[in-house]
Design a protein around this nucleic acid. Sequence first.
DNA 1: ATTTTCATGGTACCGCTGTACGATGAAAAA
DNA 2: TTTTTCATCGTACAGCGGTACCATGAAAAT
Lengths: 202, 202
Amino acid sequence: MPKRVDHGQRRAHIIEALVRVAAAEGLHAVTMRAVAAEAGMSLNLVQYYFDTKAQLMHAALERLEQQSHARWSARLARLPQPVTPQVFVETFLAEALPTDEESRAFHLVWTSYAVLAMTDPELAAQPFVEGPNRLERQLTAVLQQARDESAADRSWDAATEAAHLLTLAHGLGTSVLVGQRGAEAATRILHAHLDRLFDPGE
Amino acid sequence: MPKRVDHGQRRAHIIEALVRVAAAEGLHAVTMRAVAAEAGMSLNLVQYYFDTKAQLMHAALERLEQQSHARWSARLARLPQPVTPQVFVETFLAEALPTDEESRAFHLVWTSYAVLAMTDPELAAQPFVEGPNRLERQLTAVLQQARDESAADRSWDAATEAAHLLTLAHGLGTSVLVGQRGAEAATRILHAHLDRLFDPGE
DNA sequence: ATTTTCATGGTACCGCTGTACGATGAAAAA
DNA sequence: TTTTTCATCGTACAGCGGTACCATGAAAAT
């Protein structure tokens, strides 16, 4: 056969190899040859499916974004219905912390890309602005809903609080990745704040 | 003259060049030659003052840490005395945000190093654990003091809150570096939370 | 039965990067 | 005055990384 192969699948395979390499040795260790070796194929094939390294890097970034959406959707679907705003927010933020190994790899590589994007305008700053902004809007909506549904007097602003929570989660995630604290400690800090938000009067 | 030159000064000059390069083009663009060019000297001299690139990188990291301490000390000294805990905390965290250009450069390079340290055990994870931990202890102490001094009933835990504030500041800093929001927006979010901490009953 | 297409393999080239080696002038030490 | 030390220079070498080029078998298409 000219082995009419599924290109999408091949590309996915390669990108997964890239992520493994990046998660284990850092994004700087991502070389065409290293990815090829990790993917168990020849250097040529990587070139064949992604003409240039820049294309590979971009494709990997896009795929990471899609995957994070997929992860979140799946997790949301697994929640017992109906989903209260509080549970929604807690799940939302739990997903933003590197708890299991897969999540750790994702966040590490994502953060590496983010740092790259800080100086490389070529590497679309788009995912790192548009993406978080979308998340922030989603979270704002749910927080607003939680506020309205509750009789309790909540003195916070939904938009400000959404930004606060997301950046807090990201900061905590970084501290976990860098080994400053465990995922459990990060979760505790996050929940201490969430409890304060949702149960104001103690 | 064998121009008995001040080695410390030369090394500082080189490291400053490194930071400029890293801040402008990313840490991956930091090459011996690039640093030499930025420092206005020959490749040989960089090698002369730092035998190996690894040594240069380590030295730069150490210097960044010292500089951040120095910046903080200077800023603290400029504050009108006596310094109330609230002002102390606000200043502390303001310093943790990339407001001016110099601060932006510092935080960008520091974050780049942090990402490196996530996978490179050789690059002491020490500064990224020990350093933040020390800051956390300092902040905890001041928060505790603020709690004790105030008659108001504050329902938060000083240690948890210190970790929360520092990671929040770091997360906000990253969002600024990546262009998601301006330094002013980050400051607003931070202060919204600080006000809530220090003026509980609205 | 040819000819073309497709997936794959091997290898070569060029540029960049870290590092090493030797040279040189000038001043301090002898 | 001779010798050694010090800062500085230029250059070279080996390795690696991205990219390009060519080959090949096997199956479609003609």
